[in-house]
Design a binder for these strands. Structure first.
Length: 256
DNA sequence: ATGGTCGCGCTGCGA
């Protein structure tokens, strides 16, 4: 099972890029974030034509997450438990191909001390509580997505410049670690313990040509998935394409 | 350099 996560920054604007990558990389399951479209307007047929089933949780203009799978998709649930007031489409979960999978788009947080940063920390706390419940099922599981947190300085091109900034702040790193400490494995880091590789490069200031990136997109595995982890990598090629997303796909291979 | 560039959708917001 090859499982990928990709923040596409609008599935409609990115459709040719995403279809080209799927044909090339042939993942079994793809977790998308920032689809930025209502489910009715999602380009379903284009994905179904190349063999993917879909589970969508969309929203107009902002956010939006999706699961694509070459296997039948069952048991879909939309929205992260823990806050009935939360209307943002940032979490979808399902069972497919013998695994539990979830696509998550953690809030960016915008600015330290802002309401949005508080929402980010609360969201990560809710994700940890929900993950705790999921882990009790003792299934192979992948919770993948744009976590908007670079876990350690090794995940940042210039740690000194980013110290204390959003995506690197100690409070959000601690919140991400509380999630990891439940027993999840960061698939890319497990396979590349010392690599300095990024999954996101800002559109601004020539970050991509200068390789000024951060690793903020992660595939987090339950023990039952981690025990079967065969490989993981970041595919940088899509970031260099015409009309690229500011994120690039991260994938892992699990031998079920 | 206190900016830069995208996407959405029509004005500025979110990232």
């Amino acid at each position: 099972m090859k499982i990928a996560t990709w923040n596409v920054n609008s599935v409609k604007a990115r459709l040719p890029n995403v279809l080209a990558w799927l044909k090339d990389a042939t993942p079994d399951v793809v977790l998308l974030q920032e689809t930025k479209t209502l489910d009715d307007a999602f380009p379903r047929v284009e994905f179904e034509d190349i063999g993917y089933n879909l589970a969508l949780h969309g929203q107009k203009t902002y956010n939006g997450v999706a699961i694509l799978s070459k296997h039948p998709i069952d048991d879909v649930s939309r929205g992260l438990p823990g806050d009935p007031e939360d209307q943002e489409a940032r979490y979808v979960e399902a069972f497919t191909g013998g695994m539990r999978v979830a696509s998550v788009y953690v809030p960016n947080g915008q600015e330290i001390g802002s309401d949005k940063f508080a929402y980010k920390l609360k969201f990560l706390g809710r994700l940890a509580r929900h993950t705790e419940a999921l882990l009790r099922q003792e299934e192979p599981m992948v919770i993948g997505g744009d976590y908007n947190v670079a876990p350690f300085d090794i995940d940042v091109y210039d740690p000194a410049a980013w110290e204390g900034q959003v995506l690197c702040h100690p409070d959000e790193r601690a919140a991400l670690r509380r999630l990891l400490h439940l027993g999840l494995t960061d698939a890319y880091r497990a396979k590349h313990p010392t690599a300095h590789r990024w999954s996101w490069w800002d559109y601004r200031a020539g970050a991509w040509p200068k390789d000024h990136g951060l690793r903020i997109d992660h595939l987090l595995l339950s023990p039952q998935a981690a025990d079967r982890l065969k490989g993981a990598d970041i595919d940088r090629a899509p970031r260099g394409a015409e009309k690229a997303s500011d994120h690039t796909p991260v994938w892992c291979e699990i031998a079920l």
